[in-house]
């Protein structure tokens, strides 16, 4: 599994694969005009994952546009091939829309989702 690190910008998230604990973390906001171009290296990276690879995907996004939402679905679908995959979907306790977005992916893809509530006061 190769390294992956994309630095954040004001419109795109930081995406990093932490090899030591086999964790792919997406954090920040994802509102690029061209999400397909932005996520292409991530999807290419995901293509190389073997079916026996254990991976945790942590999604800690504040905002994402609909163009990004399609790309996130592509990512989850590519990772479905991994038998030992879990998506940890973070959402602020007062952000029901973000929780709902995670539930929508959970409904569509065959990947276990764990919902992690963040206390905004913490």
């Amino acid at each position: 599994m190769g390294p992956l690190h994309i630095a954040s910008t004001v419109k795109t998230p930081e995406i990093v694969f932490q090899a030591e604990d086999q964790r792919l973390v997406l954090s920040g906001r994802s509102i690029p005009e061209n999400a397909v171009d932005f996520y292409r290296p991530v999807l290419d990276w995901a293509q190389s994952i073997g079916s026996d690879f254990k991976l945790t995907v942590q999604v800690q996004l504040e905002y994402f546009n609909t163009s990004s939402s399609k790309c996130l679905l592509d990512l989850f679908k590519r990772l479905e091939q991994s038998d030992a995959l879990e998506v940890q979907w973070y959402f602020d306790a007062d952000d029901e829309d973000m929780l709902e977005a995670g539930e929508d992916y959970d409904h569509i893809v065959n990947v276990p989702f764990k919902f992690v509530e963040i206390d905004p006061e913490a």
Partner: peptide, 23 residues
């Protein structure tokens, strides 16, 4: 609308810069 949203999200339809109506 949530059912409709899920159908559109999961459809193969998309454009390079958008979600082909998903927005």
């Amino acid at each position: 609308w949530r059912i409709l949203y899920r159908q559109c999200l999961d459809s193969g339809s998309r454009t390079p810069r958008g979600g082909a109506g998903l927005g």
